[in-house]
Computed example of a mutant assay.
Amino acid sequence: VGGTGLTLQMTQDGNITYALTDLTQTDVEEYYQGFANRVLWPICHYRLDLAEYARKEMTGYFRVNRFFAHRLAPLIEPDDIIWVHDYHLIPLAAELRQMGLKNRIGFFLHIPWPPADVVLAMPVHEEIMRGLSSYDLLGFQTDYDLENFAGCLKREGMGIEKSPGHFSAHGHDFRGGAYSIGIETAGFAEFARKAASHSMVQKVRQSIEGRDLILGVDRLDYSKGITQRIDAFERFITNNPAHQRSITYLQITPKSRSEVPEYEAMQNAVAEQAGRVNGAIGTVDWVPIRYINRSISRPILA
């Protein structure tokens, strides 16, 4: 952040070459902190109440995607396949097409895609849908997300589904599919096996003194349901006093996007909520909720 963006920095890691470019502080504020995370993120998570639309941030979002396209285009060979990831880069294919690139371009969305009634509340929904329609293959995580996308096209007459998973919109034919993603379970299981003897894991086991452990690991975000979980835990203990002192709830929640006001407010709210519950139902020898607001390494979490 803060550079001129006039030069690309090329770095090599094994057989992967990375091309890095700077963004200005204004770019970051309007593109990332603004439209991407104060409009697209809440709307895609059905939180219209948290979406805050500003024209300059919308302009910044499309401007930065245009900038990325101009930085990327000289690096692309005619037979390259381009794979774009997530909501920050929805307009990228459309920008590359404007520059005359004919390459096959795929896109995968790592967050939900809501139904038409939610999407259409976004002032620039047509531009976003046009951006998605510029790809050759759209990947969603669930069939429901794919159905919602198809519904958005039909609702506004922007396109049609010619056959299951085959669409035509804005003069372009493309495919869409649901491709569920997960983790490498074998590798994670190996982490868990090795972590069993780690000093931190041993300390946690000793500290809970044989109690059952409820573990939550989430980035601090309103889409994760952290406050609702704390509420549910408090109600369970209150309604089932026999379980008091027999269960500990450990919530590990690294800070996220603290520069966005909604996230800063949530950080304070979750900490206050955990403290209130501990004060209400805890005892001198039992802290019901352990709330950690920092990262724990993946091998230890396993």
Rank of each mutant, 00 (worst) to 15 (best):
D13S: 14
L213W: 05
G165C: 06
R211I: 03
P164I: 11
Y31K: 01
D231F: 08
P241A: 08
R290D: 00
R47Q: 06
S134D: 12
F233M: 10
R298C: 00
N293P: 00
S223F: 00
L48T: 09
D80Q: 02
P164S: 05
L8I: 13
H172R: 14
E127N: 06
L72G: 05
D27N: 10
E147G: 02
A232E: 07
T21L: 03
H85L: 01
D49T: 08
R97L: 07
R245D: 12
A121K: 15
K102Y: 05
E264H: 11
G159D: 08
N103I: 07
A195K: 03
N278M: 03
P78D: 13
W41E: 10
Q273D: 09
E234M: 06
M158N: 06
G34D: 06
I111K: 01
E234D: 12
A54G: 08
M122N: 05
M10C: 13
G187N: 10
N65K: 06
E77C: 11
Q228I: 02
H70E: 15
G187L: 10
G34E: 07
V277T: 06
L213P: 02
D22A: 15
D212K: 14
I289T: 09
D221F: 09
I300C: 02
Q206N: 07
R211Y: 00
V204L: 15
Q25D: 15
I16N: 01
T17R: 14
W113Y: 15
A192R: 14
E161G: 10
A302Y: 08
L109E: 07
V84E: 04
H70T: 11
I105C: 05
L138Q: 01
H88P: 00
N103C: 04
E190Q: 14
E126A: 14
L101W: 09
T59F: 08
D221L: 10
D13N: 14
P115H: 05
A93Q: 08
E126Q: 11
F67W: 04
I252G: 00
T7R: 10
F188E: 11
G14Y: 01
L146F: 04
F68Y: 06
D117Y: 11
D49R: 08
V118G: 04
I292K: 02
G139E: 08
D13Q: 15
S163K: 12
Q267K: 13
V119L: 07
Y31H: 03
P114M: 07
I81E: 09
G171Q: 12
S168F: 13
N240H: 15
S258M: 11
G177P: 00
T11P: 00
